[in-house]
Every structure is written in C-alpha cells, then in structure tokens.
Amino acid sequence: MTFKLIINGKTLKGETTTEAVDAATAEKVFKQYFNDNGIDGEWTYDDATKTFTITE
C-alpha cells in the first residue's frame, strides 16, 4: 500500500510517499524521516486516505 506524508513545517514543506505493508510500518518510516530532517510537530493520520500530516 502507498502512504502519503504531507509536511507543513516552518522550514520544510512538501509531500512524499512510501510503500508499506500497513500504517504502523509507514509511521516508523515517516518518523525516521522527521528525525533525519529535524522536523518536530503535531501529526495526524487519516486512514481513509492513508495520509499522515505533520505540522510544526
């Protein structure tokens, strides 16, 4: 399955996707992406659209 990440950061904005077997696996991938890029904020997940959103 394809999961999308929408980034609404102070310095970084955009979208990316990842292929994962489930939302929990995608969450781990995206959290690592947050850490690697110094993004910290509030994030949500919409199961209907398989979209994670992080807002700094």
Rank of each mutant, 00 (worst) to 15 (best):
E56Q: 08
K50M: 11
K13A: 09
E42W: 12
K31G: 02
D47N: 08
A26W: 01
E42H: 11
A48V: 10
T51K: 01
D22H: 02
E27V: 05
N37K: 15
Q32G: 07
E19A: 09
T53R: 04
K4F: 10
V29M: 08
K4E: 03
T16K: 14
F30H: 00
T53Q: 04
T25Q: 12
T2Q: 10
F34T: 15
T44K: 07
F52C: 02
T16A: 14
K28H: 09
T44S: 11
T16M: 15
D47S: 12
F3P: 00
T17L: 07
M1F: 14
V21W: 11
D46C: 06
T53I: 07
F30D: 00
T55W: 12
T18K: 03
W43S: 01
T53D: 01
F34W: 13
E42F: 10
T44Y: 08
K50P: 00
K10W: 13
W43R: 00
E42N: 07
T17W: 14
K28N: 08
V21Q: 11
F3G: 01
I6W: 04
Y45F: 05
V29K: 10
A23D: 03
T17C: 11
T51H: 01
D47F: 07
T17M: 10
G41I: 08
T49H: 04
E19K: 12
Y45K: 00
Q32P: 01
T44Q: 10
I39V: 08
F30G: 01
N37A: 14
F34A: 15
T49C: 03
K4T: 13
A48E: 12
G9Q: 07
L12S: 12
D47E: 10
D46E: 05
T11H: 13
A23R: 09
Q32N: 10
A24Y: 09
G14N: 09
T53N: 03
A26F: 02
E15G: 03
T17N: 05
A48F: 09
Y33A: 06
D47M: 07
E27G: 05
A26D: 00
D22E: 02
K10H: 14
T11E: 11
F3N: 01
T25R: 05
E56H: 05
T18E: 04
A26L: 02
V29H: 11
A20C: 06
E56D: 06
F3V: 02
A24R: 09
